[in-house]
């Protein structure tokens, strides 16, 4: 399958990318690693008239210790997130989850920013950064602004990004000393999660988010709230789907997803508490 024809322009910097996307209007799309966008274009589910290639904006590929958080450039590839020693030390949950995105070939090309901006509820990194309480930095023609992960995901493949804004950085709070777990249930190793759970616990606080349990990645606040007020892991896990609205597909019915979510949240909390 060959995508429908489009015009292709290449940006050398974030500023140039934003200016180009502004010139070409809402029918233009950013191309980073292309591993979410190109499959959609081949299937004609997306048909942008212009692609602004930001894949060469290499100054947005970095993982830096920024004091109380780790700053990750939006164009950092999954493989670099997976293998980052800075993340291994301060936010190992994110590095581990990045190692479960697709397969090595996909992780060589796909970027963390592309995955988050695509806002697919079935993707691993939107939910993982949501669980971690991340903040996203976006840049537009009028400057940059910060959006909390919990305010970012608005609907299926829909985010708070304006059409002329570009995600530039992901800020993840340091999680030193936290217990954590990433549970991904699928039938083939490279597949999307049928249901996934990212969770951490530290000193009575916790964060739990669900993959593929609704139109957006889901923050399971009820689970964290129950743990905070002293509930057992088993009781807290029963609240796994309080915020979720799963749908059925070829892999799983709503009932099966609901069951999986509870089981996987329990397993994740047990692992994060061990």
């Amino acid at each position: 399958m060959i995508p429908a024809a489009f015009d292709y322009v290449r940006a050398g910097s974030a500023a140039e990318a934003i200016s180009l996307i502004g010139q070409h209007g809402s029918d233009a799309k950013f191309l980073a690693g292309g591993h979410s966008l190109l499959p959609l274009m081949k299937l004609r589910l997306a048909q942008p008239s212009v692609l602004v290639d930001i894949g060469r904006v290499t100054d947005l590929s970095y993982i830096k210790d920024a004091g109380d958080h780790i700053a990750i450039g939006a164009l950092t590839r999954h493989m670099d997130v997976e293998k980052s020693s800075v993340l291994a030390q301060h936010a190992p949950l994110l590095a581990h989850a990045a190692g479960h995105v697709g397969d090595p070939q996909v992780r060589h090309r796909g970027t963390i920013g592309g995955s988050i901006a695509h806002a697919d509820p079935a993707s691993d990194l939107p939910a993982t950064t949501l669980a971690l309480g991340a903040t996203y930095v976006v840049q537009g023609p009028k400057g940059s602004r910060e959006i909390k992960a919990s305010d970012f995901y608005l609907g299926f493949l829909e985010s708070a990004l304006a059409p002329d804004e570009m995600l530039t950085e992901i800020r993840v709070p340091k999680m030193n000393g936290a217990g954590w777990s990433f549970q991904k249930f699928n039938r083939r190793a490279q597949d999307w999660a049928i249901v996934g759970v990212a969770a951490w616990r530290r000193n009575g606080d916790s964060g739990v988010a669900l993959v593929n349990m609704g139109q957006t990645p889901v923050l399971a606040s009820s689970v964290a709230g129950a743990l905070k007020s002293g509930a057992s892991i088993a009781d807290a896990a029963e609240l796994a789907v309080a915020e979720a609205s799963p749908s059925a597909d070829n892999n799983a019915s709503v009932e099966y997803r609901t069951h999986l979510a509870k089981v996987l949240v329990r397993r994740a909390l047990e692992q994060a508490s061990a």
């Binding site: 292709y8 499959p39 894949g55 070939q105």
Partner: peptide, 19 residues
């Protein structure tokens, strides 16, 4: 369709030649 781009395996059905 795996081949190497700059020494790393990539799936060439999901890459544009311009990339």
């Amino acid at each position: 369709c795996s081949l190497h781009v700059d020494g790393e395996a990539a799936k060439s059905c999901t890459l544009l030649a311009v990339q």
